[in-house]
């Protein structure tokens, strides 16, 4: 861990001001916001991230961690802790996919620490990224190559990959947000803006070190989840080698608007198999207007993984991903709306 100076932010504006002047963004930004710290401090200890200054935004928790549920939907403050949201009765009852994706992530302790905003921005678990003794990692060191291609890549992505990076996006909650058509509220040096959550993350392409569309100094202040017909008939299915405390091998967030067994509308986002929280639009299209049978679910899953590219050890992932999606869809269809 490199030396850094530590400051506490006492209002949003000064936090943004503190971080807005820097040229380099994201991984290499010398000024980083510190919220739960569960990802940032870990990466600093192993020398992957080397900020010179930490701006502790936890003092803003009072204003940035509100949970508001009303007839229009749900608004979750960016600094709300994962556990608080996961066990919020309204979230559990009316937005099950959100609650489940949080409860199935990390551990109780980490969920008590980690903020929602930090969670959706969490970095990949790719071992080649996380260990600086590996020379080749385009995400860590642009232009250095990708050791995971041709290496140990069982847990790596099959969707959204590029010749430069196949690192998996490891989170769960962002998929749940995408499945509910959520938007993210961002405040930055230029004021406030809102974008759909599925526009927050960037495909690796030839710039895998740039993982999202946030500019310097921008802070995620809240997530807005509309209360739509599919919200209650939603679930998060996470498949992994052990029962708990593991990142997904494959996962699916699904939200279904069903009428008499026919899909009126649907949202699907996949985890554990893609470089970003992956909205499976092609699968959604297959399902719309169709009765939700096993065959249709299977066709949708085929469509979702049609663009998959595998790399050896993860050759099994398209099949597992398809099975996961089929299971999730059929389970969701059984839920009460």
């Amino acid at each position: 861990m490199r030396p850094f100076s530590y400051d506490r932010a006492h209002d949003l504006a000064s936090a943004i001001r503190a971080a807005s002047a820097q040229v380099e963004v994201q991984n290499r930004a010398p000024i980083q916001f510190l919220a739960g710290g569960t990802n940032l401090l870990d990466l600093m200890k192993i020398d992957v991230m080397r900020p010179e200054r930490l701006v502790d935004i936890n003092p803003l928790e009072d204003s940035l961690s509100e949970i508001v549920a009303d007839g229009d939907g749900l608004r979750l403050g960016g600094l709300a802790r994962m556990s608080t949201v996961a066990h919020h009765p309204d979230v559990e009852k009316n937005y099950p996919v959100l609650s489940q994706s949080l409860k199935l992530a990390a551990s109780a302790q980490l969920r008590n620490m980690a903020s929602l905003a930090g969670n959706v921005l969490q970095r990949t678990r790719c071992s080649y990224f996380r260990d600086v003794s590996w020379g080749a990692c385009n995400k860590r060191e642009p232009g250095s190559g990708c050791a995971a291609i041709g290496g140990v890549n069982r847990k790596h992505a099959v969707l959204g990959t590029s010749p430069h990076c196949i690192a998996t996006y490891p989170g769960d909650f962002a998929q749940a947000l995408i499945a509910l058509d959520a938007t993210v509220e961002i405040t930055g040096p230029k004021g406030e803006r809102r974008i759909p959550v599925h526009e927050l993350h960037r495909l690796p392409g030839d710039t895998p070190h740039i993982e999202n569309t946030l500019a310097a100094g921008e802070i995620i202040t809240a997530f807005q989840i509309p209360r739509k017909a599919w919200a209650k008939r939603s679930l998060y299915l996470k498949v992994r080698d052990r029962e708990s405390y593991e990142f997904a091998v494959a996962s699916a967030a699904v939200a279904l608007d069903l009428a008499d067994g026919v899909v009126r509308d649907v949202r699907i986002a996949l985890g554990g198999v893609a470089t970003i929280p992956w909205r499976a639009v092609a699968a959604e299209e297959v399902l719309k207007g169709k009765p939700l049978t096993e065959d249709i679910a299977r066709s949708a899953a085929e469509a979702a993984f049609e663009p998959a590219r595998t790399h050896g050890e993860n050759d099994f992932k398209p099949e597992l991903g398809r099975n996961t999606l089929v299971r999730a869809l059929l389970d969701a269809a059984k839920l009460e709306a």
């Binding site: 401090l41 870990d42 551990s107 109780a108 302790q109």
Partner: peptide, 26 residues
């Protein structure tokens, strides 16, 4: 020392957290 085992679990204001991923200043 990286939030993967739980051996450092303590309570902060009554909530269980990992002391290895908490800066003393926080």
């Amino acid at each position: 020392d990286q939030g993967q085992c739980g051996a450092c679990t303590i309570h902060v204001d009554g909530r269980r957290v990992l002391s290895c991923l908490t800066l003393v200043a926080m």
